[in-house]
Amino acid sequence: MTNPTPNEQRWIAALDELRNCADLHVTRDHQDGPDTDAPDARSVFGTLAEQDGVALAPALQACYLRFDGLGACWGFGEEESDPLFAGEFNLLPLVQAVRQQPPIERYPYASPPQQEIVAELRDFDGTPMTGAGHVTSLRIKRGGVHNPEIWFSDNPLGFHRLDIDLCGYLDALRVTKGTFGWQYLFTDVSLADENYEVTAEFLTEMLDVFPELFPQHDYAPLRARLEARL
């Protein structure tokens, strides 16, 4: 493996935090690459602009990851088969994500305005190991330099725009470790609604437990967001 960038080192450390935490049951994790010949962020962003017509904001290069894949699946609680809360993430390489087809079949009942959004979505994080059905997508537009919107899907509860960009998403993902439903902290959804009862319980448990398990991270901003949505 080539020398990891500071951003990649933070992600390697995040996986180590999961693996080395005796209180979590990590059922699967993977970190693929980066290989010695993996292109850097500037090269990749140039390729996407020239070959795909997708010009991403240069600021996003700071959080670019050269991994061919990165993910983990875990649970917290005495019973591995019935955890108090759990999580999963599975990040795709940026180029692979951008070149995917839009997930039109996932939203068969989307309204015409929603269809316009769906046509520009490209999945980059999901839950394939558990089949939880949580998917996060970039809204990719062609023409002009842009910072893609981030959209979260939780079928059958629809999809929601997050009020963070890609770098903000990745920062929050490292802290939450992919706890199921953490993305709702960055939406305008009321977690007091009965449809989000389990999500609210998971996030409450996470914010009670993680500050003790991972004291190197600051959970106060996430706690404030949860309180604002309950």
Score class of each variant (00 low, 15 high):
Leu166Cys: 03
Ala41His: 05
Asn3Thr: 15
Ser153Thr: 14
Gly158Thr: 09
Met129Val: 13
Leu24Gly: 03
Asp193Trp: 04
Asn3Lys: 14
Ile164Glu: 02
Ala41Gln: 04
Met206Trp: 02
Asp188Gly: 04
Leu65Arg: 05
Lys177Ile: 13
Asp29Gln: 14
Tyr107Val: 08
Ala86Gln: 01
Cys167Gln: 07
Leu157Gln: 14
Gln101Ala: 09
Asp37Gln: 11
His146Tyr: 10
Gln9Leu: 11
Asn90Asp: 15
Glu17Gln: 11
Arg174Pro: 10
His217Met: 08
Pro215Phe: 13
Val98Leu: 04
His134Val: 05
Leu18Lys: 05
Asp40Gln: 08
Gln96Trp: 07
Val135Gln: 06
Thr5Leu: 02
Leu166Thr: 03
Glu120Lys: 10
Leu24Tyr: 00
Leu213His: 09
Cys63His: 06
Thr136Gln: 03
Leu170Ser: 01
Gln31Trp: 08
Glu105Ser: 15
Gly75Asp: 00
Leu191Trp: 04
Ala119Ile: 06
Leu65Val: 03
Ala62Cys: 11
Leu92Val: 08
Gln9Asp: 07
Asn7Ala: 13
Ala14Ile: 12
Glu227Gly: 09
Glu78Ser: 11
Pro112Val: 12
Phe67Ile: 02
Ala49Gly: 11
Pro93Tyr: 06
Pro211Leu: 01
Ile164Val: 15
Leu15Trp: 04
Thr204Ser: 10
Ala49Asn: 14
Asp154Leu: 12
Asp29Ser: 12
Met206Thr: 07
Ala22Gly: 00
Ala228Cys: 10
Asn90Glu: 14
Glu212Val: 14
Glu80Met: 13
Asn90Ile: 03
Glu212Pro: 11
Thr127Trp: 10
Pro211Asp: 02
Lys141Cys: 15
Thr5Phe: 01
Arg99Gly: 09
Thr36Ala: 13
Gly71Glu: 02
Trp74Glu: 02
Gln31Thr: 09
Arg229His: 00
His160Cys: 06
Gln114Val: 07
Val54Tyr: 00
Ala22Asn: 08
Thr136Tyr: 05
Tyr196Ser: 10
Gly75Trp: 05
Asn90Val: 09
Pro93Cys: 13
Ile117Val: 13
Gly181Gln: 01
Ala22Leu: 07
Val98Ile: 15
Val198Ser: 15
Asn147Gln: 15
Pro215Ile: 00
Arg99Ile: 05
Leu56Ser: 05
Asn3Asp: 15
Asp16Cys: 08
Asn195Val: 04
Asp23Gln: 14
Arg139Lys: 14
Trp151Leu: 10
Glu50Ile: 15
Phe180Val: 10
Thr199Gln: 05
Arg225His: 03
Gln51Tyr: 09
Glu78Met: 15
Asp37His: 10
His146Thr: 15
Arg223Leu: 15
His30Asp: 08
Gln61Arg: 15
Arg174Glu: 12
Ala57Ser: 12
Arg229Thr: 02
His217Val: 03
Leu185Tyr: 01
Glu50Gly: 07
Gly75Cys: 09
Leu173Phe: 12
